[in-house]
Amino acid sequence: MSPEVPPEIFHHQLQQVLDLLGIFVFAAAGALMAVRKNFDVIGITLLAEVTALGGGVIRDVLIGAVPPAAFTDLGYFGTPLLAAGLVFFLHPQVERIMSAIDVLDAAGLGLFCVIGTAKAYAYGLNPIPAAALGVTTAVGGGALRDVLAREVPMVLRWDKEIYTFPALLGAGITAALIEFDLFGPVTATAAVTFAFSFRVLALRRGWRAPRAWRRNSGTSAEEQ
């Protein structure tokens, strides 16, 4: 399959700005976790870079877009360094605006699941695998961050507001739009907005994914 869908959804400059904003917010979240874990400056920087770029690097390696964009564009690699430096010196102030960061993180989630799906499709994947890599783009960095920080990845935790499902819906909508030749800047924006809104609603209303049927909602002793 030839790349019929361009990896860039919006005008080049606009998409680059959106990419960098999303990377910055993801990196700040990673750096904050490192601060809470009492990591040193290397650990803070590493978690910032991994959180921001890990999902995209996994996607690019799997689809053969090598070297990954994270290593060919200085802006992509440098933005997490900026976020790490900001959190290193100003983490108390950044902690105070966590609710705003959560909203921006939701925007990054929506943007990256759509962009990741479109890029994977453009490199020859069928819609379902492309959507899977779209989800990976959005949540893969956070999962790697949690593993490095010796935490249960947030994408697997039942006691946190749903995170992966909005990305899954956004990627699925994107794949369907591409398959039916309806994908473009307007519909892509709608898919991003849908995933973003779903995540924000989950945060505001405390939505969580269901556990196994008839499983008690309380945390049992073996889960401690």
Results as ranks from 00 to 15, higher is better:
residue 7 P to R: 12
residue 9 I to G: 00
residue 9 I to Q: 01
residue 10 F to D: 05
residue 13 Q to D: 14
residue 14 L to Y: 10
residue 15 Q to A: 05
residue 15 Q to M: 04
residue 16 Q to C: 06
residue 17 V to R: 10
residue 24 F to K: 00
residue 26 F to Y: 11
residue 35 V to W: 04
residue 42 I to Y: 15
residue 46 L to Q: 11
residue 49 E to L: 10
residue 49 E to Q: 07
residue 49 E to T: 13
residue 52 A to Y: 02
residue 52 A to P: 07
residue 53 L to T: 03
residue 60 D to L: 05
residue 66 V to N: 13
residue 71 F to N: 08
residue 72 T to W: 11
residue 72 T to C: 11
residue 78 G to Q: 05
residue 83 A to F: 06
residue 84 A to I: 00
residue 84 A to Q: 00
residue 87 V to W: 01
residue 91 H to Q: 14
residue 91 H to V: 11
residue 94 V to A: 03
residue 98 M to G: 12
residue 99 S to T: 14
residue 103 V to S: 13
residue 106 A to C: 14
residue 112 F to Y: 07
residue 113 C to S: 11
residue 117 T to Q: 12
residue 118 A to S: 13
residue 122 A to K: 07
residue 123 Y to I: 03
residue 124 G to V: 09
residue 127 P to E: 10
residue 130 A to F: 02
residue 130 A to D: 03
residue 137 T to I: 05
residue 137 T to Q: 05
residue 142 G to F: 03
residue 147 V to H: 05
residue 147 V to L: 15
residue 158 W to M: 15
residue 159 D to S: 12
residue 162 I to K: 04
residue 164 T to Q: 01
residue 177 L to W: 08
residue 177 L to A: 06
residue 184 G to Q: 07
residue 191 A to Y: 03
residue 191 A to H: 00
residue 199 R to E: 04
residue 200 V to P: 03
residue 202 A to N: 05
residue 204 R to L: 14
residue 204 R to I: 13
residue 207 W to Q: 10
residue 214 R to T: 15
